[in-house]
């Protein structure tokens, strides 16, 4: 799996947004409130690896993706592509990067130009990235995304295709420029289950065949687990747990990951599930300051949770939770805390 230097590396990435302020706020010199959409996120993507990022709506996963592709400027932190910082890119390097890194969006109905035929959409993409517009290339890619026969689709406009077919075209358009990294933002959440499965399977096959690295973002753990090697769990702008997929599903460590997995309804007959014990909903990530962000809903809450936990190694997982801290080692914490720990773990 992961060997050598990562192809994409994210280091302490932050993306804050300013709340809109009224003239009164300005006159009174009130401090601007900051929405901490992505706060101190680090991870690495290696070649041929597929990394999943899951979390509820509002956890910052889409902002993270937009920052990776350069649609948002990081407030702080670094993104490195093949050891080169995105912040230092010049024009041509950006162009190269945007060819190498392609994105598939959630809503296939609005990502394609409604007035362009499928052929025109694909040719436009090739034109932008200075690649030849040979028919062979276009036919080939449509066959790869299982739109048979290509001739049937080439001269149609998006209106004439179903949701599943449109998402295949969107994937074809991303792959036709031979990217190294594919970013997928909830690519199947708007599709019906019957089509969802086929797009998921196809995505997994294509990744293998084309040596792609994939970052897959979703709120739906059950689809992520079919595509990704590792999963990052995000909560209110921070990654709270990271682990190999199966390990995370079977043995989640962070109380939030546990709650998230436990809350998914099951349709296997022998699975008897209890309802979630988590109350309330995530708060707004506005100036939330220190401390674990899940602490107000966490069933395991302790005093020490007022301090921000960092990701630490624990039995093959990386988890940001005080339950797994040896506080003396990491924080030089008090005996009291250490005692509490031994009781809990």
């Amino acid at each position: 799996m992961s060997t050598g230097r990562p192809i994409l590396e994210v280091e302490n990435l932050k993306r804050y947004f300013d709340q809109s302020t009224s003239i009164l706020d300005t006159l009174l010199r009130r401090d601007r409130e900051r929405i901490q959409a992505v706060d101190d996120v680090s991870f690495a993507l290696h070649e041929n690896e597929s990394v999943g990022i899951i979390g509820e709506s509002g956890c910052g996963k889409s902002t993270l993706l937009e920052t990776l592709i350069g649609l948002q400027t990081p407030t702080d932190g670094r993104i490195r592509y093949r050891d080169q910082d995105l912040a230092e890119f010049d024009r041509s390097e950006w162009k190269q990067y945007r060819g190498d890194v392609q994105i598939i969006f959630q809503d296939p109905f609005n990502t394609l130009n409604p007035k362009m035929t499928i052929r025109e959409s694909l040719e436009e993409q090739l034109g932008i990235h200075d690649m030849g517009k040979e028919d062979e290339r276009i036919h080939e890619i449509l066959r790869e995304v299982e739109l048979h026969p290509p001739e049937k689709y080439l001269d149609r406009v998006p209106d004439q295709l179903s949701g599943g077919e449109l998402q295949r075209v969107a994937i074809a358009r991303a792959l036709i420029v031979e990217p190294k990294i594919l970013l997928a933002d909830e690519p199947v959440s708007m599709l019906d289950v019957s089509t969802q499965a086929s797009v998921l399977t196809m995505l997994a096959d294509l990744r293998e065949k084309r040596d792609l690295s994939l970052i897959y973002i979703s709120h739906d753990l059950s689809t992520v687990s079919h595509v990704c090697d590792t999963i990052n769990v995000m909560y209110l702008g921070r990654i709270v747990e990271r682990s190999e997929t199966r390990e995370l599903l079977e043995n989640p460590k962070h109380p939030y990951s546990q709650a998230l997995i436990q809350a998914i309804p099951s349709h296997s007959l022998d699975h008897d599930r209890e309802r979630t014990k988590i109350e309330g909903s995530p708060r707004d990530p506005i100036d939330i300051g220190e401390g674990c962000r899940f602490r107000d809903r966490c069933p395991e809450r302790m005093d020490v949770c007022e301090k921000t936990p960092h990701l630490i190694e624990s039995e093959g997982h990386e988890v940001a939770c005080h339950l797994y801290y040896d506080h003396e080692e990491y924080e030089g914490g008090t005996d009291e805390v250490a005692q509490e720990m031994t009781g809990e773990v």
Partner: peptide, 9 residues
């Protein structure tokens, strides 16, 4: 058969 199952990836 088409439903992905989180408990059976």
């Amino acid at each position: 058969q088409a439903f992905p199952d989180v408990h059976n990836p």
